[in-house]
Design a binder for these strands. Structure first.
Ligand code: SF4
Ligand code: SF4
Lengths: 147, 147
DNA sequence: TTATTCAGGACATAAAAGGTCTTTTATATC
DNA sequence: GATATAAAAGACCTTTTATGTCCTGAATAA
């Protein structure tokens, strides 16, 4: 169906929420993040668990625990988070490695997938969470001034 | 998982095969197409059935029947065939229509999906089957000259 | 020590992908 | 007209992926 997973959507919005916090030291509980973004808490917890393993967030257990970003928002790209939760993106199996499909040396379709993937990944890796967060503030301000 | 479906891959390779034929009048049987491309015949038949409904191929039943392209290869885009077999592409539900997600007026993520989708669709619609077929011939020639 | 909060993993459900098969209908040829 | 051929239509099946939930255990601050 060629659609982003909820996993990616939720994870990104979670990281976005953390990116919007001024206090970058105090951990934020998963419950707070989930409620703020309106996503299933238990699922988000799973996702943040893997974000932790991949090193994008640090987790603090126990009282007043939660999650903190380990990098500044400008250093985290969209692609980072997408790939962290859904694994590396391959538009088609034959892009995994040369020779995966025996046909790829003569197949013109292969090149199209390759180019499409290159462009898509390039775009996603060009989006960072600092920009994203700022653009969110801007949108909110614009909406307010209208009403 | 963000991957093209086999359906799209098979359909595209089927159309590509037809695009490579000089004789544009005599129908080509699904069995021939499937064997030439190494894809499951029954499945490909289903796919061509829907390609027929969408008007990209014309079908002839009975003895010496099969499929013929209804347009010249240069008029058929990658996107045409992909969308014909998997339905319209939406990277995320909120792109289906404005207001699908109540949040989209303030959500910065929305815009990223939108831009990514715009670029992807733009690229796919810029690829036509005449170019594709020619690039296939070129690749084959190059490979031959090497061996 | 106790309440809190994440980690890890098992489990559940539903949807989609990928594919087969059978029956019916249209067509060309003998 | 009979017959062989080939697509149309739709039922059916299996496997994989997506999207969660829940429980138990471990860390930690108050
Ligand atoms: S696109 Fe070409 S190379 Fe890639 S899997 Fe399909 S046939 Fe093989
Ligand atoms: S990206 Fe933003 S607008 Fe789109 S569904 Fe997610 S929250 Fe809603």
């Amino acid at each position: 169906m060629f659609r982003l997973s909820k996993a990616a959507e939720y994870a990104i919005r979670g990281v976005l929420y953390l990116s919007g916090k001024e206090d970058t030291v105090k951990p934020t509980g998963i419950e707070e993040i989930a409620t703020a973004q309106g996503v299933p808490p238990a699922y988000l917890a799973k996702l943040f668990q893997t974000l932790g393993k991949k090193g994008f967030v640090r987790s603090v257990r126990g009282h007043d625990g939660g999650f903190v970003l380990t990098k500044t928002p400008s250093e985290i790209s969209f692609l980072d988070i997408i790939e962290a939760v859904e694994g590396p993106i391959f538009l088609n199996d034959c892009l995994i490695n040369e020779g995966y499909c025996a046909n790829d040396s003569v197949c013109p379709v292969h090149d199209v997938w390759g180019e499409a993937q290159k462009r898509l990944l390039g775009f996603f890796s060009s989006c960072n969470f600092k920009e994203l967060s700022e653009s969110g503030l801007k949108k909110r301000k614009k909406l307010k001034s209208k009403s």
